[in-house]
Amino acid sequence: MKLLIIEDEKELAGLLAESLAREQFVVESAGDFDTAMEKLGVYNYDCILLDIGLPDGNGLDILRQLKEEGKSENVIIISARDSLDDKLAGLDLGADDYLTKPFHIAELNARVKAVLRRKETDGKHLLEFGNLTLDLKERQAFVKDNNLQLNRKEFDILNYFLLNKTRLVTKTALAEHVWGDNIDQADNFDFIYYQMKNLRKKLRDNDAGIEIESVYGVGYRSIEK
């Protein structure tokens, strides 16, 4: 899988590249409009992260170009502007998703994988990790053939961990993803601990091949036993 990051902020581009490389993607970066256009002219990418606020041009123009070539559906817009107009314009031009800075790495992973999955042939809506299988369509989780009987939130949590296999998922990222965007409220994520306790118990009771371990108190990580 080959990804292109079009982002003028070098630090951020480097970080994203580093993180995505951990997911075994081949990652390239373009720091300005011209480099981006050049690279897009030569190679095909499975997913493109596009910052629309470039110093020498508008990212939306790149998107327009991609749309003409029929390649805009695998673009994720990343923008510091949480503007509805930009969002609508971007999605109108065929972008798959819109991510507002700052975002969590776990969230980016989840979005990128969603784009890649949509590209793949239909019918595949299964996520697998160890002996665990998630049926995204039926929203069911199985250990071998054994249904885990997860509630809605537990399924969302597990799904998120499977999109971020072995990666750190911070409590904040998890809360935002599963319980919605919380713009003001509480570092108090005790209730997440409570949810995680239940989920871990279900995994353990069903002899799942994975477990979710705590990482320095800031978050969790799914690992294969």
Partner: peptide, 24 residues
């Protein structure tokens, strides 16, 4: 606030990656 967004994003993401590495 706008100007702070990107540096803050970088900061948090770097810390996330650092914690993820695990050899601390």
């Amino acid at each position: 606030s706008h100007e702070l967004q990107t540096p803050l994003a970088i900061m948090v993401n770097k810390l996330e990656l650092l914690l993820e590495k695990g050899n601390l």
